[in-house]
């Protein structure tokens, strides 16, 4: 464990908690893409199956359980409890265009052709593009609530910190995982446009609005 991975995990946890609290407290999921949240629940489910097979540390196990629990709770709030506030008309990204290619690629490019490894690879590739429905929805509505931008900021920051963690681990431990690194770079690049808007607008107290 190094400081970059720890702050990355805490940034990820912060994002997940911010979103869950935003929906719970405002009793509304307006502006939130339910499709992205379903994809994240799929990411955690397929990646953390090793909860049943391997014990790494209390930290590792408890964080995985928290991530899975919060992501399913968020999906439940969006599609069940606060379904009336779900903005289905703007959450129209065709997720099959993400899941099918990612599924195919995880069979073609992986470290080991075993079920757990293919599911892990699928989850790594899926996480890289899981935010696209959310970013697409914001581009369609032309704006985002400030709390939603903070959620996206911490979510994008987490994988950027993981990139630094992988540099650190390669240098100090000779450890690297090319699949995770390439997917992590793609994932972080997808946030660059948002990061620019976040820094130039939200941090200056303005509302995030895109030229519609």
């Amino acid at each position: 464990m190094n400081i970059f991975r720890l702050t990355g995990d805490l940034s990820h946890l912060a994002a997940i908690i911010i979103l869950l609290l935003k929906i719970w407290k405002s009793r509304s999921c307006a502006g939130i893409s339910g499709k992205s949240q379903i994809l994240f629940a799929m990411v955690f489910t397929t990646r953390y199956l090793d909860l049943l097979t391997a014990y790494i540390s209390l930290y590792n196990t408890s964080m995985k359980i928290i991530y899975i629990g919060c992501s399913y709770a968020t999906v439940y709030l969006i599609y069940a409890k606060f379904k009336a506030t779900y903005d289905g008309n703007h959450d129209t990204f065709r997720v099959e265009f993400l899941v099918v290619p990612v599924g195919g690629l995880s069979f073609l490019v992986n470290h080991d052709f075993s079920p757990l490894e293919i599911l892990w690879t699928f989850s790594i590739y899926l996480e890289a593009v899981a935010i696209l429905p959310q970013l697409f929805m914001i581009s369609k509505t032309g704006e985002a609530e400030t709390i939603t931008t903070h959620y996206l900021f911490f979510l994008g920051l987490y994988r950027a910190l993981y990139l630094i963690n992988w540099v650190w681990r390669f240098y100090f431990e000779g450890f690297f995982d090319m699949i995770a690194i390439v997917a992590g770079v793609v994932q972080t690049i997808l946030y660059c446009d948002f990061f620019y808007l976040y820094v130039t607008k939200v941090l200056k107290g303005k509302k995030l609005s895109l030229p519609a």
């Binding site: 470290h111 450890f175 995982d177």
Partner: peptide, 10 residues
């Protein structure tokens, strides 16, 4: 390239 596929990350 020393590649170890350790799954100790979240």
């Amino acid at each position: 390239w020393d590649h170890i596929n350790r799954k100790d990350e979240l």
